[in-house]
Design a binder for these strands. Structure first.
Lengths: 208, 208
DNA sequence: CCTACCGATCGGTAGG
DNA sequence: CCTACCGATCGGTAGG
């Protein structure tokens, strides 16, 4: 009896298939395109050319895929506010820390666009989603604190309440996930510049 | 055999149950809380204290419930840009029409909050959703046109491209659905004022 | 507005 | 012994 094929007898460890990270990237893409509830593990398997069981080799459950995606986004955003908190020790104004946090947020949104997009759409349908919402609220609260501090410094106009200003400002930042595409006209730095200019100086020309 | 109960034998026309509008309101609420795909017709029935079949008495399908909600939001937003288009005939600057469109959008978002929230989360998972996305893109294009016209008038700063400014501006407006609640601290007029001030004049105090 | 169902598909797991 | 994966099927639930 002949051997099946010389190449299949070569010694090697494992198959040259997908690793955990590649499966996660595709899962996040699908979750964003069709929604988490609207995506079945079978859909993801078909997309990758695998069986459902192969997915479960990489992740113990569909919820773990979501968890990994949300953690990626939350960890990156947490790093932004941690940087601002550390900058508070090193002197400098609250206004400067706020502007830096806005820029940092834009960069995180662009660099982790799929994961952050998923995070911003989470509604709390499961315990994992509710925990993600709690972490997100803590981040939002820290950003609002930066706006309040800048207002107390006298660096912001007084006719918009700081908490309202914070919501509008980071609402504008977060709205990037609705249209930003890496292959598009603008890069992260250009967008961060436009956002900070619009937010702090406004669309109207100065000195009119 | 005794009759079940005297009150159930009383003659009357129809039941004092829910009408189409009431079923739609609850459906929109549920769709927003758990997502359209995450909400079953059975969930909606339970919420209303009815059976699934009772829902199908009011609407021929789950998709028709979604359609009615999206039409409500799209019709209201279309009215805003139609008003701006009519104002173009009657003189006045593009800048004034843009500011009016921003205010009008905020008012529509606040008055039709649940329906607009649903619209802004549509991903195109069905033909009805894709048609809604097409209508929404036409509205966004009209709003971007207003920004371009204001820029050509010289009413906007030149260091932010008009299409980018339009995305950021209406991204900020649309982000209202993430936090605005009717019972909250601010009413529609106050929010519209804050949005237009921030967008056109910026957060920094003037004359520094 | 209900009871009784349908075709299909869900997330997840078995042995190999 | 490991990594990566298959064919088949589990008990339940979806929209209609």
């Amino acid at each position: 009896m002949p051997r099946p094929s010389p190449t299949t007898t070569a010694a090697r460890r494992g198959r040259p298939g997908y690793d955990q990270e590649a499966v996660l990237r595709r899962a996040i893409d699908l979750f964003n395109r069709r929604g988490y509830d609207g995506t079945s593990v079978g859909d993801l398997a078909r997309e990758l050319g695998l069986t459902k069981s192969a997915i479960y080799h990489h992740f113990p459950s569909k919820a773990h895929l979501l968890q990994a995606a949300l953690d990626e986004a939350l960890d990156a955003l947490t790093a932004v506010i941690d940087t601002a908190a550390r900058a508070e020790q090193g002197g400098g104004t609250a206004y400067e820390r706020l502007e830096e946090a806005v820029r940092g947020s834009v960069v995180v949104l662009v660099e982790h666009l799929p994961a952050v997009t998923l995070l911003l759409r989470v509604r709390g349908n499961s315990e994992a989603e509710q925990e993600a919402l709690r972490r997100r609220r803590r981040i939002d609260a820290a950003l609002a604190g930066l706006v309040r501090a800048a207002a107390q410094e006298g660096a912001l106009r007084t006719d918009i309440p700081p908490d309202l200003a914070a919501r509008l400002l980071f609402g504008m930042v977060n709205s990037l996930v609705e249209w930003y595409r890496p292959e598009g006209r603008y890069d992260a730095a250009a967008i961060a510049e436009a956002v900070t200019t619009l937010a702090f100086d406004g669309l109207a020309p100065r000195g009119e």
